[in-house]
Amino acid sequence: MPITFDHVTYEYPTDGTPVPAVKDVSLEIADGSFVCVLGENGSGKSTLAKLMNGLLVPTDGDVRVDGASTNTEDEDALFAIRKKVGMVFQNPDNQMIASIIEDEIAFGPENLGVPREEIEERITYALEAVGMTQPRHHTPEKLSGGQKQRIAIASVLAMRPSTLVLDESTAMLDPKGRREVMEVIRELNRQGITIVLITHYMEETVRADRVIVMSEGAVVMDGTPAEIFGDTEAVRRYHLELPISDYLAEKLREAGLSLPHKIYDEKSLAEEICRSK
């Protein structure tokens, strides 16, 4: 069941005139999809993310997860929503609470009252899903950034969510860490988990089903990566940039190579360059 936004506006509480961080957004995140959210700093991406599992509740309009509104006094209902829609943030160090990896992952399910044997199963499942079965009795402190972020993802997976929302979760990682986390995210999506990925790295959007662009709190573009990056005027207007392979393809076209208009990665670009002569 999808996540739906129906004319959602959110204003942060302030002393002065409230400025909406999210303005009249209506959209639906389809089950099993891989959606990227782009936009400048301050465009409302993180607020949008926090609205998806009731960390924030709309000032106006309604967000529903599997048909249930996040605007509810019923704590059990809110809990059910947070179980379904898990969040991973930018800095893994701010998300770690336990001193042993498996305790970190058990924290969520224990709070849900999951029986001990099942918690064991969930820890095993979650660590396998992120490729970190080895050091489960160690402290997460000594792990690399990429490993910590995978543990953060595992502790969300232990809640058996149907959707994972990642807010710039690769921004602080080294190249290998980024690669590891992106591989895990893609594999989880293949297994059917819905992914909402907020990012500034255009390259990360290439394999998404859908890209949403935000500007000043509103959704200004919504389409496939090819549709979004094919609109060079809009890419400029919203201060996005082309993924590097696509930028190179454009420059090579300008220089006279005949390359088809599509979305590239390094491999497909090299193939088309070879074919173009």
Binding site: K176, R179, S245, L248, A270, C274
Partner: peptide, 20 residues
């Protein structure tokens, strides 16, 4: 050293693999 190379170099390496 578990480092990555820039996208440009990745494209060149792919081209070389394809014999160009």
């Amino acid at each position: 050293t578990e480092m990555d190379c820039p996208s440009v170099v990745k494209v060149v390496k792919e081209l070389e693999r394809l014999g160009k």
